[in-house]
Design a protein around this nucleic acid. Structure first.
Lengths: 340, 340
DNA sequence: CTGTTAGCGCCTTCAG
DNA sequence: CTGAAGGCGCTAACAG
């Protein structure tokens, strides 16, 4: 059963050093020796102890995945893609959730739980404050942010600005002029913050079309279904004249649609709704959206992280474009009819 | 920065053994000593190396989470719950995905990747063959199955039989008599298989109501949105007279609804649809469903696994009941009208 | 209650 | 191309 490296060495008639080199594919081992060692190891069912290997080498072959949730679309998809990419390179994925709840403040990220436990860190959609980032950087491992970001840190993200602009332009092209925006927490003004950039895209498109943007046109809430619903209720309460809404995520958009329906209004006849993500279930409500490949983004982020760990490659941000998927939640506005 | 235990020991004026005991909360350390050690450790930023600790103790404080996907509702929720529970007990969650794809056969579970790397295993919705189970058992760690199962292994699951029966009875109570069933792979006849048990529930309810169940009333496909859609298309093609369908999962049910709509039919006027899960987005299509708390199930499974690792408690299966959530996807059948 | 002493199992120089 | 030997940093008896 639990054979050690020395047993393999003994049976193969070589030293433990050679076994180690042979099994890890290091150079300076003759083919014949390597082959013999391999077969003995297989026969004995030998697998190196990760703990012992880590202790001796300093490498853990493990990546820490930090995320607020795994149950939301973006996070689940990124995590799935990342795990797959890591797995194919022999790395493991250690998952850490830091729920962002409505009631309590988020638990702070404690770098100690990652200390000497991972070779790299993937932060998935988790907005960290500077102190947390500094603490993680202090761990001395490569780190990549996916779908959130921090000045000075490598990021895999969407072209949020263009995405926000394009989504808004789609509504403008359809003839809308009073276009609301619902998004995440308003206090998030990090430059790399997706919500902030998407909002800027909305502002730019509105401005370019000569449309005025009163503060009442935007509502900030939580980045999920209920958040979208709540925000939409508020938006329609304060601006019954909006004919279209750009939601910063598909889940929010779907919540918005529910809110519209609750009020006895129809999508898109009374209110058009567009989201961002390309959520698998968007089709259920005919959601028009700006789609992007979250699984692929996760895989790319993981691959990039591994090259950084390997020390090869000059790392650079990865920016994904989104693709407009037209469905039935957007359409031309009804002429001159307010639904107040 | 990276201080070792001996440095803490030196500064605190005790031995490394005492530092170890003090920091891990073991008995036989005076309060004053423990306090001093703690403060020194904090001051020095000392955290024990997991590798070294594992190597010396044989414990990894890590659980392996095996799952086909993380992006589907049940899996994401269970994983999230499990991670949270593990985290609160100081355990880490190592994620391993084994995608079940339409094209390729699933990659087999190789116990070697888990060897000496985890203290326990949580299998989430992943049907394993006997050889794989045996290999995992051979690792010598406690193992729990969530939402899938194998004879002789501890399981956390739904009362699938009752759930299937109740869902079907709901349709029968509404007046339906030709009730189809769409579910997962037909070759899965494991006794503990949720699809099989849910199907049995359907059969029992039909039988109890004196309704005949022709083979054409059931279609088996993939356990996701597209699988549900495909299955529903096929079902309606071969049985245009069905007035209601019981889908084995909400994602399948939502796919079924899409298929119904594609055919120009309406839910529930032409066809009623009920699913299982209580998916967060079920509300979008007014999906009637048998809801269950997947996050809680994941947390409970993790907690149970930890008690097994600790050696306390006599482990027993955990069986969750589901709750009928009536929404608009189910209603009485139209009288005597076939929609062929 | 605390210290001493062996390892835990592997990797990695350094020789040869 | 291969072997010898010293850690990696901690835990777990066993004394005291």
């Amino acid at each position: 059963m639990a054979h050690g490296i020395d047993e393999v060495a003994r049976v193969a008639g070589v030293s433990t050093a050679t076994v180690s080199r042979a099994l890890r594919g290091l150079p300076n081992v003759s083919d014949s020796t390597r082959e013999r060692v391999r077969s003995v190891a297989t026969q004995l069912g030998y697998v190196a102890s990760p703990s012992a290997a880590s202790l001796a080498s300093g490498r853990t072959m493990t990546i820490g995945l930090l995320t607020p949730w795994v149950k939301h679309w973006f996070f689940a998809n990124v995590i799935e893609g990342a795990e797959r990419a890591l797995q194919s390179e022999g790395f493991g994925a250690l998952l850490y959730t830091f729920e962002i709840s409505r009631n309590a403040p988020r638990r702070r990220v404690d770098p100690d739980v990652l200390r000497r436990r991972v070779d790299g860190i993937l932060v998935v959609g988790l907005p960290l404050d500077p102190a947390e980032v500094a603490a993680l950087v202090g761990l001395g491992h490569p780190m990549i942010f996916v779908g959130s970001g921090v000045e000075g840190q490598l990021t895999v993200r969407l072209d949020d600005l263009v995405t926000g602009r394009t989504a808004t332009e789609h509504l403008i092209d359809l003839g809308h002029r009073r276009i609301g925006h619902i998004s995440g927490a308003p206090d998030d003004v990090t430059p790399f913050s997706p919500p902030a950039a998407r909002r800027r895209g909305w502002l730019e498109a509105m401005g370019a079309a000569g449309l005025s943007v009163e503060p009442t046109l935007e509502v900030h809430g939580h980045f999920d279904l209920d958040g979208g619903r709540d925000s939409m209720r508020q938006l329609l309460a304060q601006r019954p004249d909006v004919t279209a809404v750009f939601a910063a995520s598909d889940e929010m958009a779907m919540g918005a649609i529910l809110a519209v329906r609750e009020l006895g209004l129809r999508v898109p006849q009374d209110v058009s709704v567009i989201g961002i993500d390309g959520h698998d279930l968007g089709e259920l409500v005919g959601l028009t959206t700006m789609a992007h490949p979250a699984v692929e983004e996760g895989a790319a982020a993981a691959a990039l992280l591994l090259t950084m760990i390997a020390g090869t490659s000059a790392p650079a941000d990865l920016v994904y474009q989104t693709r407009l998927v037209r469905r039935s939640s957007t359409g031309p506005p009804r002429e001159g009819v307010a639904h107040a």
